[in-house]
Design a protein around this nucleic acid. Structure first.
Length: 284
DNA sequence: AGAGGCCCCTGCCCGC
DNA sequence: TGCGGGCAGGGGCCTC
């Protein structure tokens, strides 16, 4: 369940199960995917935060006073199919045992990753190191976003890079571009286009978080929270997954193409590709 | 420096 | 029914 709204929903959902608990052990059979998890043993989970699509479990020494900052973090990335469960299943990859019980990490495709690191020490994790601002935070500023967008190549792969803004994945990139009426392959956004996209990203992310994210899949239950809850933002998708269906704004069939190796959905009428005509002087 | 391609994995759906 | 191909919400690494 892996874009920002799904990760944030996961964070909120598992926080009551983990906050204040002591980790007794973490077991798995893939040391290269789940690194140094033994370091979490005996630590107290002092809080759960999120950065982009990464979940961060704050790990404090057992005897550390409340006011002392945590010194280790368990970083969790859900990949494409990762999620937590209360019951063990055929795709359980990691078992997390605390003094309150067990929590299982379910991940059919095994793209998910975990690592225990010193707090804030993200060397060797290029995406986390180069992560752009949180889309719903005060650090995400329209002027800076527009400045970067003016220099960027195709806008959708640029959004997916996590550099201009964090947490945007394939669904919310398509939805944000649809809302901003910008073609996914548009390069060098104008100031007006960048402004529309900035606000679209913020709106889409805020609405999706409030909706509990998007739960795709065919009802078989792959994409849901540990307690069985599903998000309902998928019912509001205007472009993503709607190839061949009418655009909610103009009725033209949504087109599906491949861009940057990712399925990409857009309205050819509302989101025309603007020709990069006569070079303008970049004197600003 | 930065963009594009390929790879990591498994499951499911579709068409033949 | 069986099987091959294509596809899937991500990101790291390598190559130009």
């Amino acid at each position: 369940m892996p874009e920002l709204p799904e990760v944030e929903t996961t964070r909120r959902k598992i926080e009551p199960l983990l906050a204040g608990r002591t980790i007794l052990n973490i077991t798995h059979d893939a040391p290269h995917r789940y690194r140094d998890t033994h370091l979490a043993q005996g630590r107290r989970v002092s809080g759960l935060s999120r950065r982009g699509k990464y979940l961060l479990l704050h790990l404090a020494a057992p005897d550390a006073p409340e006011e002392m900052p945590h010194d280790l973090e368990l970083i969790v990335h859900l990949g494409m199919t990762g999620g937590f469960r209360l019951e063990e299943g055929p795709h359980t990859r990691v078992t997390l045992t605390t003094d309150a019980g067990k929590l299982y990490f379910n991940d059919p495709r095994r793209f998910g990753k975990m690592a225990v690191v010193p707090a804030g020490e993200y060397r060797g994790m290029p995406t986390l190191t180069g992560m752009g601002p949180e889309p719903l935070g005060d650090d995400f500023r329209e002027e800076e976003f527009a400045r970067l967008a003016a220099q960027a190549g195709a806008v959708k792969p640029w959004l997916l890079s996590q550099k201009p803004v964090s947490g945007v994945g394939n669904i919310y990139a398509d939805e944000s571009l649809w809302r901003a009426r910008i073609h996914p392959a548009q390069t060098h956004l104008t100031r007006e286009e960048a402004g529309r996209l900035y606000h679209a990203v913020r709106e889409v992310m805020a609405e999706a978080v409030e909706a509990g994210g998007s739960s795709l899949g065919n009802g078989s239950g792959n994409y849901r929270q540990h307690d069985g809850d599903v998000g309902f933002f998928q019912g509001r998708h205007a472009a993503y997954g709607r190839g061949g269906q009418p655009c909610p704004r103009c009725g033209t069939d949504i087109r599906k193409v491949v861009l940057g190796q990712r399925g990409t959905h857009f309205c050819p009428e509302c989101q025309p590709l603007r020709a990069e005509g006569g070079r303008q002087k970049a004197d600003g």
